[in-house]
Write a protein that binds this DNA or RNA. Structure first.
Lengths: 126, 126
DNA sequence: CTGTATCCACTAGGATACTG
DNA sequence: CAGTATCCTAGTGGATACAG
């Protein structure tokens, strides 16, 4: 798409910007905690503490950090109910739901190739 | 799948093992370098040095490290041609190709939501 | 060319304590 | 309950040098 002009300066610049942005997003989102969070939020809206229980092994700090990152990138919506004690709910946005399809795909892939991977590891480690 | 028996000890143990293995695989593969490598290898077989050129910004060390990891998990096949100088080619296995579909999905997702994400970031950072 | 090893700076991330 | 801040350690990852 976008046939390049003869000198093409503005378009090249735009492409470079988009590329580096895409890189950044990739680096942000392609990590195990983000994937797990997205996976759980895909099923339903969850509170902070519920998420911490579901995503086994995640620390308080990592959870807030990843949630902020996902919120910043517009994948997660944060709803604060000003009650006492406070109640904060996290929901996937449309963009988040769309990405969830990808994450689901990877979960399915893992299940499908579990055996293959396990035997490959055994072979390699020998 | 797999209806649980009354005491169900072996099956529970198996499920737990499979789960923790899946976690491990997730942690291995869900990282930006692995994804980028898989993406490039999806198009064609590449040599070590070609990969280093394609995957911009990756260090020598990270590249070997990730390639070993992918080989160990059976996603990438490593072919050594005993010439001088040596020539080593990396190819996606069937499992690797299958995962590539997922990675592709994520690339597409990034392109599709680039605008949404960028504006969300701007809003958040303000 | 491909790969390993060593060194070193840096940051990721856990534990803890404290606020609203 | 949710979130921030501080400290501190273990591991990540870059640069470099060297070997096959």
């Amino acid at each position: 798409m976008g046939t390049k002009q003869f000198s093409g300066l503005p378009e090249d610049a735009d492409l470079a910007r988009a590329d580096s942005l895409a890189r950044e997003i990739f680096a942000d989102v392609a990590n195990k905690w983000a994937f797990l969070i997205i996976e759980f939020l895909g099923e339903r809206t969850l509170r902070f503490s519920e998420l911490r229980d579901e995503v086994e092994g995640i620390s308080h700090k990592m959870l807030t950090q990843n949630l902020r990152m996902l919120e910043r990138n517009g994948l997660v919506e944060r709803d604060v109910h000003p009650t006492v004690p406070p109640r904060v709910e996290y929901t996937l946005t449309e963009a988040g739901q769309a990405l969830r399809a990808t994450v689901d795909g990877m979960c399915g892939w893992t299940r499908q190739y579990l055996g293959h991977i396990e035997s490959s590891r055994d072979r390699f480690d020998a």
